[in-house]
C-alpha cells in the first residue's frame, strides 16, 4: 500500500487517476489513514484512528470487534453515511471522503446496499414498495421499478408476500425484504450491520445462508458484527479495537457453519 503522505501530495487529477487505477485493479473499498474524531466537551474521542483497509470486488469480509471498538463508525464511513475527519476513502474508484451531501446520497443509492440489524423497513409501506424505494431515488421509471423490485423479492423467495406490510411478516422475512432492497439497485457492495442481531438462531442461519448465496453470485459483502460465529461466515475478518485495525486475516475454509 502506498503511504498516506504520498497520496496526500497528489493533485486532484492524480487523485482521480488513482481512483481509476483502483477500480481497474478490482478494488472496491480503499481507505488511507481514515480518522473519525468526536469532540465531547473538551475531550477528543477518536472513534476511528488511521484505518487503512482494502477490499476487492467479490470479497466477503467481516469487520469484527467488541462493542465500542469503532466498527459501527467505520461502517458508517464505508457506507458514506458519515464523512471522515481526516484521511481518504475511495469507493469503487470514487473519492467518497471529499464528497458533498448530494453526491454522498447518490453514492449510497448506486453503490451501496444496506442491511440493518433492525431491518429499517418503512412500517406503512408494503414489501414491494420498500424494495422499490432505492429505485425511486435512482429515478427509475415506475414500471421498471416494480419489475426490478419483484425480481429482487423473488431472489430472496418473498415474491408471494410482496404486498404484505412489515408487521405482517416474520423477522426473517423482514430481513429478507431488507436484503432484496439492498440488492435491487445492483450495488458495488452489500453492507450488513449485525444482520442477525434481531433474529433467532435458526433464522439467523437462514439469513447467513442467503448471504453465502449472494456472495457466490458475485456480490461484494461487508459484514459488521461482534459475533465471532457470524464473522466466520466471511472469507476474511478485519478485527477492530480502539478504532484501529488490530488484525486482518483470512478465515479458515471450509470451517463455516
Amino acid at each position: 500500500m502506498p503511504a498516506l503522505e504520498a497520496v496526500q501530495e497528489l493533485s486532484p487529477k492524480e487523485l482521480e487517476e488513482r481512483g481509476e487505477r483502483l477500480r481497474n485493479d478490482g478494488i472496491v473499498i480503499r481507505t488511507y489513514d481514515l480518522w473519525k474524531t468526536y469532540i465531547m466537551g473538551d475531550q477528543e474521542i477518536h472513534a476511528v484512528s488511521g484505518v487503512d483497509i482494502e477490499i476487492r470486488r467479490g470479497e466477503y469480509v467481516a469487520i469484527m470487534g467488541p462493542s465500542g471498538s469503532g466498527k459501527s463508525t467505520l461502517m458508517n464511513l464505508i457506507g458514506c453515511l458519515d464523512t471522515p475527519t481526516k484521511g481518504l476513502y475511495y469507493l469503487n474508484g470514487k473519492l467518497a471522503s471529499d464528497m458533498e451531501d448530494d453526491e454522498l446520497a447518490r453514492i449510497r443509492n448506486k453503490e451501496i446496499g444496506f442491511v440493518f440489524q433492525t431491518f429499517n423497513l418503512l412500517a406503512r409501506a408494503s414489501a414491494l414498495h420498500n424494495v422499490e424505494l432505492p429505485l425511486i431515488y435512482a429515478g427509475v421509471p415506475s414500471q421498471e421499478r416494480a419489475e426490478r423490485a419483484r425480481t429482487a423479492l423473488r431472489s430472496v423467495d418473498l415474491e408471494p408476500r410482496m404486498h404484505h406490510k412489515p408487521n405482517e411478516l416474520s423477522g426473517g422475512q423482514r430481513q429478507r425484504v431488507a436484503i432484496a432492497r439492498a440488492l435491487v439497485n445492483r450495488p458495488s457492495i452489500l453492507l450488513a450491520d449485525e444482520p442477525t442481531g434481531a433474529l433467532d438462531t435458526a433464522t439467523g442461519k437462514e439469513i447467513m445462508a442467503l448471504f453465502e448465496r449472494l456472495h457466490s453470485d458475485g456480490n461484494t459483502i461487508v459484514l459488521v458484527t461482534h459475533e465471532p460465529d457470524i464473522a466466520l461466515y466471511a472469507h476474511r475478518v478485519i478485527h477492530i479495537r480502539d478504532g484501529k485495525v488490530e488484525l486482518d486475516e483470512e478465515t479458515p475454509r471450509p470451517e463455516r457453519k
Binding site: D101, A105, R108, P134, Y137
Partner: peptide, 9 residues
C-alpha cells in the same frame, strides 16, 4: 432509512 437508501436532501 430513506437517506441511507440514497434520498438526497
Amino acid at each position: 432509512i430513506r437517506m441511507a437508501l440514497g434520498a438526497q436532501p
